[in-house]
Design a protein around this nucleic acid. Structure first.
Lengths: 228, 228
DNA sequence: TCAGAGTTTTCGGCTATCCTAAAATCACCG
DNA sequence: CGGTGATTTTAGGATAGCCGAAAACTCTGA
């Protein structure tokens, strides 16, 4: 009763519900690359297993039991990512895809072993927090980079890890966790932003900027510089 | 068309056919803990895929294509075993079970990475040879320990890794690859053998001794010692 | 308020893998 | 040669996931 499919569904539902509010079946379908009807079927099953509650035509919400399983899987995933990156030197943009497969076969014992070898890390290579053994996570108070205004500075806390091409792009720009960014300008009509990242100037589209999260936002001195 | 089940079937068929001659469906069924009829069905499928040939009521034999897949899976399995044992300190008797799950999710890229980290090992922790990247293996010229006679000495080359309780037993006796053994006596009617392993004397049943393979068999001096 | 448009569910069907039980075949022995 | 026990295959059915298309529902805008 805890197949790979079940784990995958719970994981993406957890992820999608981080935005708050119920999760639609279509959003799940998109994330899992599955037909909408398939999701309805699986949701019924998970509901029967009391892993989530489902209001027809409304959406879905994890129960505590479902949340626990989701967090277990996420812990596996992020620990494996960290392990691959740190202990095996797998490139930043590939660890996600590998971890996606490993997360389902990792025994608790080996999980502990990895945790120990890595010295109980708290984040994965993309900056996402690794749930503790007793499944506590503190979701960070981060904003999307896309939501910053010109003149603001911040620190990258996390980057979305689903798209490896995008990750390569972020790496090229120097946008990884801990990096400082300064927003130099923001074009209107959802246009590109220009940034200063570790000395270098660069431009980034709004869509990509949605997948970079920042904390520690503060006003810069750019406005003063621009004043005559 | 290359599901985990397919890989598992090919792997055990390869393993069973090492003894020479065709492989019966029932032996496959036993190894995979599956009903006999299930095996017939899968065998038909693999036969259609030209991964093996099947003569009804006679048995099954891998084709070259089937053998290649089997060897890929076995390479994965044994490399993972070595990695778990050496790089992650997983106990000897547990690596098999973990590897059994990992072998199906290991990418070629990560396989290479492990191979490199380990320095291109040639055997797994139980002494079985790891096929090379281009899938060459030299099956060793080993005999079962059970087939030795009193007075013979030999070197352990390999131990069967399926049963972890048996592996713990072997470890206790000191029977692991490279160890020297001397057969002190062999009881008749398939009775126990007494051995000297690294100085210590011990007894072992014939059934267990079937799962220990030895090479470099030579006559000892025990007979002289026994003479008046 | 009610007609699309868009979303969600239902329905029939497909594949992969497994099972049990009955039928077919084989192998051996008197 | 034929019967009997063991092995193997066939047959009918189950479950888990998936799909496409039709039906049901919701939401929004005039």
């Amino acid at each position: 009763m805890r197949t790979q499919a079940v784990e995958d569904y719970l994981k993406v539902i957890y992820d999608l519900s981080r935005g708050g509010g119920p999760v639609t079946t279509s959003s799940i379908a998109v994330r899992l690359s599955v037909a909408p009807g398939t999701v309805t079927g699986m949701v019924k099953k998970l509901s029967a297993l009391k892993l989530l509650s489902h209001e027809s035509y409304r959406g879905v919400m994890l129960t505590e039991a479902g949340r626990r399983i989701a967090l277990e899987v996420i812990r596996h995933h992020r620990l494996v990512e960290r392990y691959l990156f740190e202990a095996m030197d797998v490139p930043w943009d590939r660890v996600h895809a590998e971890a996606e497969k490993w997360e389902h076969v990792l025994s608790e014992e080996l999980e502990d072993r990895m945790d120990e070898i890595l010295g109980n890390p708290t984040t994965d290579p993309h900056g996402s927090p690794i749930p503790t053994r007793d499944l506590e996570v503190e979701e960070s108070e981060s904003e999307a980079l896309a939501s910053l205004a010109a003149g603001q500075r911040a620190t990258v806390s996390e980057v979305g890890d689903e798209d490896s091409a995008m990750l390569r792009y972020f790496a090229e720009l120097g946008l990884f966790p801990e990096a400082g960014v300064e927003v130099l300008s923001v074009a209107p009509f959802n246009g590109p932003m220009t940034l200063r990242v570790s000395g270098e100037e660069c431009a980034i589209g709004r869509q990509a900027a949605e997948h970079v999260y920042v904390t520690d936002i503060r006003e810069g001195e750019v406005e003063d510089e621009l004043a005559p």
